[in-house]
Write a protein that binds this DNA or RNA. Sequence first.
DNA 1: ACAAATCAGTTTGTGCTACAAACTAGTCTG
DNA 2: CAGACTAGTTTGTAGCACAAACTGATTTGT
Lengths: 101, 101
Amino acid sequence: MRLNPRRVAEVDRLIHEPARLMIITILSTVESTDFLYLERETGLTKGNLSSHLSKLEAADYIEIEKTYRGKIPLTICKLSEKGEKAFLNYRDQLKYIVENT
Amino acid sequence: MRLNPRRVAEVDRLIHEPARLMIITILSTVESTDFLYLERETGLTKGNLSSHLSKLEAADYIEIEKTYRGKIPLTICKLSEKGEKAFLNYRDQLKYIVENT
DNA sequence: ACAAATCAGTTTGTGCTACAAACTAGTCTG
DNA sequence: CAGACTAGTTTGTAGCACAAACTGATTTGT
């Protein structure tokens, strides 16, 4: 089995970025979750988390629903169908790298 | 088994960058190789390749030897001990991600 | 009652980095 | 010996990750 280097460079950079990879791995294990949970789990600052979520949303990889817990704003995030597929595909890329080196 | 998101963000960014990941995966499969081979295999431009190699060299992940093929300059690259270790460690990180998501 | 602190985020500014275009220094060819 | 080619390096720029500062509402302290 011969590794094709070009394939390595084809990884989805939107997912490849560690901060977003964290977010997506978390979202892949739960039905949905909120901003504050993601903030705690990832250790990202709010600003950073916010902008990464926006990017993932812009790519339709996640869906963001803004609602309220009582009177306090609540931001619910969940992986979209498209995001799930993209992540599965990304995992396959990683597997390909791990298995062929 | 519960995935720890923070571990995901700990990946070695020097290796994580796709262009450099290509370079390192190639170097991990050969004893050593030259600039032009890397250029062909990766599809990177010379400039881009040159700067990535410099970064890897600065981190002591690779060793670069400048010599001549006849009268024509020849740049030989090989993975260092440190680079090999770093790459093994990186692969373990990828494995961790693949196996826990 | 109203100032201060807290909550749940977003916007703005900055420094770094990947990338390609332009350049360099030497070699070969007609 | 002029022009093209080889093997790279340097320079300039656009984009991105990140944190600091801000926003706008709520709750707490006195």
